[in-house]
Design a protein around this nucleic acid. Structure first.
Length: 879
RNA sequence: GCCGGAGUGGCGAAAUUGGUAUACGCACUAGACUCAAAAUCUAGCGGGCUUAACGCCCAUGUCGGUUCGAGUCCGACCUCCGGCACCA
């Protein structure tokens, strides 16, 4: 052990030793409880950013903690290495995407190793390698077999910037998830995965994970799936054999329907265009054009529509009502047709007002309205449930009863049925890209689309392709790839040139970690069932819907084909907050400026008054996502080489709870460095100045040791700290343990015993504190911890090889023998009294009443009651 | 609009789940050491009042409520963040 803490030196040393010893390689072991700790796999951009550092620091802390608790921990890493940036690099720089990707992986791997994350590198995987994507294709063929994969010509989301189709999830909010461009609609034939088959299960199985997943994630998924229960009702069209089917969640309001409103894209409209007037045809065109236009978020569009002059018959009342076309009815939801009930739906109300259509009240509030109000014209839609009025024989029924009875009635009479609709759509996975897993299909003129036989997998990507950035996917221009033989008739065939959405790779990559070298199967079910489900998954909230929904679906699919035995892939999910930093914008220069060029002005309390440039011009300070253009990005490599990986990791865990946004401030990290140095100096001093330092403490008889007050206090603090930190880790709190460790190290300094003159008791207490502190520090700063461990124990065994365990607190030692009790009068703190820990309630009461200060407040007053909370406080209520 | 989450010092944040609010760290101030600086150590650090040692009052977004006692529970409101959205 050196006198000075030199981070880089010991970090390199332990990273080498861990690698040589295979310290983190995981082997299934039925005798040990398993723990699968997983962080979302990175895209190999070539550069680690602070978000990665935070993500992996959290996972690593938990992995170390669990290892020290005796768990068999699997902590793997891999690369989400298919995707757009590699293809962009090919287009712009003329490099081969494969070489570009491999080079990036190499760089990022070395950066991760510099950070000292305890991965089992022997299980590393990469999505772009044929041994991995072979099984993307394998899964696709399986799903084709059981009807979960299918091809369909339909309107799909198209990102004009990325020039590819997108799934609904990736086009959420009408913009491309990757570049933010407004998506367009395009007719295209593409492959879909039938995720909708699992819609109900995806909702209902949330009960299995609701304890471990953040509520907001489940809410987002629930909203996204968007299940609503209601009924289909068919309206006959007058003088026509057509029927119009509507979906409604409020069949109880059907007597209030004043019209049927159709989407402009509705087949009934499109099929009867010729029969409509020119005016109607123009309106239809206008609405369709308007729908295709990009809309701003939150933008309200004015209701518009037109009467088709056709009539529909209300199957309940027999009433004849007009059929309209309305811009507010969407073809993509329900049936693309609604019954308009202006009295009880806000949108219908607005529509009816605009076109002066009749508004009828058919539901009244369950609690009787004020006299006369029932017949007064509605000034707004009453969209709550209530009691039916103006509805023939249904009058007087509650909405709830009526919904059930009227649905039955419609069913019995053949003009409707109960139904559930979803917002969720099947997952379109075709992408017009080169750098992805080829979809294993061959198109044959006589046999149609034919799946590639399993034995012929993988369908490998060609070495290269012409990357021009224009026209169709580069794959379609590689003749050797495209030209093929039909597996069925052996005639000429053309390969599918679309590749799979890269989200396919990330749906199941972490199953592959359990058996990464398997060439026959994606993984051995037995092995996967040992390690999975994931015990803790850690990643960004941005994947709340896309990745996390897909992977839940995939798990259920794998269960159904017999690969796994559980329903949900991860029992706990932690969504970490973003790492952000202060950015500085100069109005005078109309650009962001480097933090180093900014002078911060403060008052004497340290409050920031403002920021200026050297020339005095003001600078706006904001906390924003890190980015190149904002000049506020922080390079983890720089941080590590300045402060060391341990300090960077400790600070990133200490500065904020993991779910919160983390504001990266370089001054903050100094605190972490100081803390590590303090611990280091303490151990160094004792090790070098106390001759008995590394003697085996087991040879000392604990019962014969004498501890004076100071040593006792230190031991108490040590054991209390163990208690606190264990509780924190168990509840997923990672910032407060660092604070607790700092407190413990402060207590060690407070001992003020010189190593040279220490008694045996002192030495024991100090060694106990040092050992405990070191082991509890391991999850945050494993390199320093290993080095300290070596110094404390006096040998060269690593922490895990030494069979060390996370310290366990001794309750007897942790217990305070004297407690401070707060004494309140009428709930206000008036005094503090000291008492032995075992003090009884009565004694406490007497003690409190005897206090001079308290007597001042109670003199001459009547004591109403006294509340005693053992070990905490006494509250005297006086009048 | 609907759903979810959050508001605590100059800042990041703690608070055993209803029991001494502001732990720990950053920043700041003063002192020690030093020729000096850095580093380190020591002390102070929510606001106001006070006769300044003792002590009092007010403070966890706002206003109410429950309770002996509320940052924590309940009701209403304000603000911010996130998600979804003519979803029928």
């Amino acid at each position: 052990m050196d006198e000075k803490y030199f981070a880089q030196k010991i970090e390199r040393k332990w990273q080498r030793l861990w690698r040589e010893r295979g310290t983190f390689e995981a082997v299934p072991d039925e005798k040990k409880p398993k723990f699968y700790c997983l962080e979302m796999l990175p895209y190999p951009s070539g550069k680690l950013h602070m978000g990665h550092v935070r993500n992996y620091s959290i996972g690593d802390a938990l992995s170390w903690y669990k290892r020290l608790q005796g768990f068999n921990v699997l902590h793997p890493i891999g690369w989400d290495s298919f995707g757009q940036p590699a293809e962009q690099a090919a287009i712009k720089q003329g490099v081969n995407p494969r070489d570009w990707t491999e080079e990036n992986i190499k760089q990022m791997r070395s950066q991760l190793q510099t950070l000292g994350i305890s991965y089992d590198w022997s299980r590393e995987i990469a999505a772009h390698r044929p041994d991995f994507y072979k099984f993307d294709q394998w899964f696709f063929l399986k799903m084709l077999e059981i009807g979960l994969a299918y091809r369909k010509n339909s309107e799909v989301n198209w990102c004009p910037h990325c020039e590819t189709t997108l799934s609904n999830e990736q086009a959420s909010g009408g913009v491309c998830w990757r570049c933010g461009t407004h998506v367009e609609k395009q007719m295209r034939s593409q492959w879909f995965l039938r995720i909708t088959k699992y819609a109900d299960e995806l909702l209902e199985d949330m009960s299995q994970i609701e304890d471990g997943w953040a509520e907001r994630v489940l809410t987002m998924q629930r909203n996204w799936i968007g299940r609503s229960k209601g009924a289909y009702v068919e309206f006959n069209v007058q003088n026509s054999e057509f029927k119009v089917k509507v979906f409604t969640t409020r069949i109880d309001t059907i007597y209030g329907a004043n019209s049927i409103v159709l989407a402009a894209e509705h087949p009934f409209v499109q099929g009867n265009l010729d029969e409509f007037s020119g005016e109607v045809q123009d309106k239809v065109d206008e609405i369709i054009a308007e729908h295709a236009k990009p809309k701003d978020y939150g933008e309200e569009v004015e209701k518009d529509g037109i009467d088709t002059a056709m009539k529909a018959i209300n199957p309940f009342s027999g009433e004849e009502i007009p059929i309209w076309i309305g811009n507010y009815v969407m073809m993509g939801y329900g049936t693309g047709a609604v019954m308009s009930v202006p009295g009880h739906d806000e949108r219908d109300f607005e529509f009816a007002k605009k076109f002066e259509l009749p508004i009828r009240q058919v539901i009244k509030p369950a609690v009787d309205a004020v006299d006369g109000e029932e017949n007064a014209p509605l000034t707004e839609a009453f969209s709550e449930k209530g009691v039916l009025v103006n509805s023939d024989s249904w009058n007087g029924k509650t909405s709830k009863e009526a919904i059930a009875l009227m649905t039955d009635f419609a069913e019995t009479n053949g003009f409707g049925e109960g139904a559930t609709t979803y917002r969720l759509r099947d997952w379109g996975i075709s992408r017009q890209r080169f750098w992805g897993a080829p979809i294993p299909i061959i198109y044959c003129d006589s046999c149609g689309p034919v799946p590639v036989p399993f034995e012929q997998l993988p369908v490998e990507l060609p070495e290269s392709a012409p990357f021009t950035g224009i026209g169709e996917s580069p794959l379609s221009k590689v003749d050797e790839f495209v030209n093929s033989i039909c597996p069925k008739c052996e005639g000429p065939g053309r390969r599918e040139t679309d590749t799979m959405d890269t989200f396919v790779d990330s749906t199941w990559y972490y199953f592959r970690y359990t058996d990464p070298k398997n060439t026959e199967m994606p993984f051995e079910p037995k092995t996967a069932n040992y390690w999975l489900p994931v015990d803790q998954y850690i990643g960004g909230i941005d994947h709340a819907v896309m990745h996390l929904l897909y992977t839940r679906f995939w798990t259920k699919m794998m269960r159904d084909i017999g690969l796994v035995e559980f329903d949900e892939p991860a029992t706990k999910l932690l969504t970490q907050g973003m790492v952000v930093a202060e950015s500085f914008y100069s109005k005078a220069k109309e650009s962001y400026v480097f933090p180093d060029d900014v002078v911060i002005e403060r008052d004497e309390t340290g409050k920031v008054l403002g920021a200026k440039l050297a020339d005095g011009s003001p600078v706006r300070v904001a906390v924003e996502k890190m980015g190149k253009s904002k000049l506020n990005g922080v390079d983890p490599n720089d941080m590590i080489s300045i402060y060391g990986a341990d300090a960077v990791r400790t600070f990133s865990m200490f500065a904020a709870p993991v779910e919160n946004e983390l504001v990266w401030q370089e001054t903050g990290i100094d605190g972490a460095v100081r803390f590590l140095q303090r611990v280091w100096r303490f151990v160094y001093k004792w090790k070098t100045e106390n001759a008995n330092w590394t003697a085996d403490e087991n040879s000392a008889d604990l019962s014969k040791l004498e501890f004076d007050e100071r040593a006792k206090n230190l031991r108490r603090k040590t054991h209390q700290t163990i208690q606190r930190i264990t509780e924190n880790f168990e509840s997923g709190q990672f910032n407060t343990p660092v604070a607790a460790l700092m407190e413990l190290s402060n207590a060690m300094y407070d001992l003020k015993v010189e190593p040279k003159t220490a008694t045996e008791g002192d030495l024991y207490a100090v060694r106990e504190a040092c050992k405990s502190l070191t082991l509890m520090l391991t999850p945050y700063a494993p390199h320093v911890a290993e080095e300290l461990w070596e110094a404390i124990m006096g040998n060269e065994t690593g922490i895990l090889e030494s069979d060390a365990r996370f310290p366990v607190s001794d309750e007897e030692v942790a217990k305070e023998d004297e407690v401070e009790i707060a004494v309140q009068v009428n709930g206000k703190l008036r005094a503090r009294v000291k008492a032995v820990a075992e003090v009884t309630k009565d004694e406490l009461e007497q003690l409190a009443l005897a206090d001079g200060k308290i007597q001042e407040y109670t003199n001459g007053k009547e004591i109403v009651k006294i509340i005693v909370v053992p070990g905490r406080l006494v509250n005297i209520v006086v009048r």
